[in-house]
């Protein structure tokens, strides 16, 4: 039987949860140590299908900064986070970029896109300052 201890992070209380497989329970897991029902939901989700929003940066050309911050537009399975990071590391973007632009479509067939989380203007060409 699979069993795991975790801290609930739904609210600042931080209940120490114990989540165990239980075929008699409605969703297949039994949660102990929580002080409200949101803890049950959190515990079951973390045990059965943990997901995370991935945030990182991609290479950026033609802007005054060299990195563009990006994020997944929804949660991806936790076990795919490092695989997502590899794909994100391969991407390169040319300014201008607008916040929300899709940078990588349907990453790893998850149905989730990697989007720009910042707009970036193109760099203005340098002009000589006359004395």
């Amino acid at each position: 039987m699979q069993k795991k201890e975790m801290i609930c992070i739904v609210c600042p209380l931080g209940c120490q949860l114990e989540v165990a497989e239980d075929s008699r329970a409605e969703k297949g897991y039994k949660v102990d140590g929580n002080r409200c029902k949101r803890g049950t939901e959190y515990g079951i989700k973390e045990m059965s299908d943990p997901t995370r929003v991935v945030t990182s940066t991609v290479r950026l050309k033609g802007a005054y900064l060299r990195r563009l911050p990006v994020r997944s537009d929804g949660p991806v399975p936790k076990k795919l986070v490092f695989e997502c990071m590899k794909r994100i590391a391969e991407a390169e973007v040319q300014a201008p970029v607008r916040m929300g632009d899709v940078i990588i479509e349907n990453i790893l067939d998850t149905g989730i896109n990697i989007i720009a989380s910042k707009s970036m203007q193109p760099l203005q060409p340098l002009t000589a300052i006359s004395p």
Binding site: T55, P69, R71, S117, K118, S119
Partner: peptide, 10 residues
């Protein structure tokens, strides 16, 4: 909603 820092700023 949960935003990143740059999105919140923008």
């Amino acid at each position: 909603e949960e935003l990143t820092g740059p999105e919140y700023a923008e």
